[in-house]
Design a protein around this nucleic acid. Structure first.
Lengths: 200, 200
DNA sequence: GTAACGGTAGACCGGACGGTCTACCTCAGG
DNA sequence: CCTGAGGTAGACCGTCCGGTCTACCGTTAC
């Protein structure tokens, strides 16, 4: 019996194949529209493996979101280490938009996977909902810490504003009707940093 | 046989009941998760009426989006007439955020219905996709016209930025993890109008 | 050797899915 | 009077849904 909470690293080979297939299908076609039969088939396994390892579709959805969250977090922190390790907090705040630009280019052609998932999971008790809100709160927390370091007069407000710019850019990016929305968001972020006194 | 393009005003009583039930269910529970049997039952009609009037589920989805789009457009234009008729273009641009605030308070507890629908309609050929992009482009067009009137140096860029703020606020409003995101977006919009030279 | 584990294969369950159909009722217009 | 449009009621179709089950195979560990 699967635990439903295992990380990707501890998964059996069959479970990893299931999770990878589910991740692609859920994001590209929608969660509700994808059935467990298709997931098992695409993974080259059977439904038995899926149910033995994850317990059910809802738990698999949660595992999909957890894995996507894990990848985004390590992407963002890795990007900041690689491109803004020696930079000040203000530059690091702006670098989050660069990280977002490259992330959306690679993994978000259909918009934010978490916002899309939230659209399909109206039940507040669904295990995936918690992961979605945690993901957004984590980003806001990162921005808040950097806002404090940057010397913002009201770091909470600045974090809210930058979160708003991140989300707006991701959504517009998914709808593909504005040129390079992430660059626009970054430019707006610069203004906001100036006004908020985040000068360091 | 239904035309699939009729406006709400020309619908038969049975068709209107179907459309109203579908609108509520699609928005609150998700498009894919709601079946035609449930829609007919909630509408107090039968599937026959649904299929006679709309032709199929996909056409009903398109009718739902068309009706929601119609309501949002008339809401925004009505708000501007009522609250900013005598105001200048700059004040009217800011008033779009007030209109959005009241709209989301009334009709958007689960986020933007169009963004949510886009998440569930990956097929670019789906009749609903066109309506979604048209809705976003219409808003951008409104903002663009006002940006020109307000004397913005680069009205296209300003319209993109304000669209981004609208979308970001709507998404955060649906996730309910930031206090009053629309007010934050409005404040950011004021800065942006200043910087863009939209002073009239 | 054998027990435990992970996996494959595939039948099977009840119910919901989108969609079609026949039959009958009601009511307005020519 | 009768036709046609709109609606109700409900059976019916094949398919897919999430989920369970038995049976068998290969590897690893005691």
């Amino acid at each position: 019996m699967g635990t439903g909470t295992a990380e990707a690293g501890e998964l059996t080979p069959g479970a990893r194949k299931v999770l990878e297939a589910a991740s692609t299908l859920f994001y590209e076609r929608g969660i509700t529209a994808v059935g467990v039969d298709l997931i098992a088939k695409e993974a080259g396994t059977t439904k038995k493996t899926l149910y033995d390892r994850f317990g059910g579709k809802d738990a698999l959805i949660a595992a999909y979101l957890r894995e996507r969250d894990r990848r985004w977090r390590s992407w963002l922190t890795g990007w900041l280490e690689e491109h803004a390790a020696a930079a000040g907090p203000r530059a690091r705040l702006l670098a989050t938009f660069d990280a977002l630009a490259e992330w959306t280019r690679r993994h978000n052609p259909r918009g934010c996977g978490f916002v899309n998932a939230a659209a399909e999971l109206p039940d507040p008790a669904h295990p995936g909902r918690r992961i979605i809100t945690d993901q957004k709160l984590w980003l806001r927390g990162c921005l808040y810490e950097l806002a404090v370091e940057a010397g913002a007069a009201d770091p909470g407000r600045l974090a809210d504003e930058l979160t708003l710019l991140h989300e707006g850019a991701t959504v517009l990016r998914g709808l593909a009707l504005v040129d390079d929305p992430v660059a626009r968001a970054r430019a707006l972020a610069e203004q906001t940093l100036d006004r908020a006194g985040a000068t360091r």
